[in-house]
């Protein structure tokens, strides 16, 4: 009986530890302190990868937004930055 109790306690301890580490991971907690050199070195590739991904997904939209207000020959915003293209869009085919 005592063996059973001991094994049950061990199992409980393992499960608790595993659950603890799982919830720590879910909270975004780390074994390495984020400010230590090892922590920063370990996290750098992750930051670079995720920042690159975010940039890839956002770049076309950011470029479009900037292009819509920046001066460009052949558009309705030739001199300086402004909303000439938006004004044209608002009055698009207004005479029809």
């Amino acid at each position: 009986m005592s063996v059973d109790t001991a094994s049950a306690a061990t199992t409980r301890a393992i499960v608790t530890d595993a659950a603890g580490s799982s919830s720590r991971a879910r909270r975004g907690g780390q074994r390495h302190p984020a400010t230590s050199f090892a922590g920063i070195a370990l996290r750098t590739p992750y930051w670079v990868l995720t920042a690159g991904l975010a940039l890839i997904f956002l770049y076309p939209l950011i470029w479009t937004a900037i292009s819509s207000v920046s001066p460009l020959a052949g558009t309705n915003q030739v001199d300086g930055w402004g909303f000439g293209n938006y004004a044209t869009l608002a009055n698009y085919q207004a005479g029809i």
Partner: peptide, 23 residues
């Protein structure tokens, strides 16, 4: 891969998730 990367919740991962979802 992306789903496994952004599965846990943190402010940065939320931003990343939004960036990927916007298109």
């Amino acid at each position: 891969g992306l789903a496994m990367l952004v599965q846990e919740s943190s402010r940065w991962k939320g931003l990343l998730r939004t960036s990927i979802l916007i298109p």
